[in-house]
Amino acid sequence: MEHKSKYPVSHVVGFLFSLILTFVAVFVALKMNVSYTIVMWIIGSLAIIQAGLQLFMFMHVTEGEDGKTNVINMAYAVFVAIVIVAGSIWVLTSGHAAH
């Protein structure tokens, strides 16, 4: 992003936001008195926000000559994430395994 600037502003901002989002998640999970489902939804949403934030602040998503490489990389990342997260949830909550 700030290519010319000597001071890595976007990295510092991204780092601070990541810390804030993480501590909010910790606070929600440990201190807030709401149901388990709500906690899961809140920290899940915070995780996705943080992933998006890091994509822009650290992962050079706006750089590069063409968008092709980024599209391939993101499709790859989304595929891996869906397989691991959705796959694990599906497998571990189905059939006898869930009981």
Binding site: W90, V91, G95, H96, A97
Partner: peptide
């Protein structure tokens, strides 16, 4: 996308 075949006997049900 084949990893569950190592533990079919966990029995995650017919769909899985």
């Amino acid at each position: 996308i084949v990893w569950v075949h190592h533990f079919y006997t966990m029995d995650a049900g017919p769909a899985v």
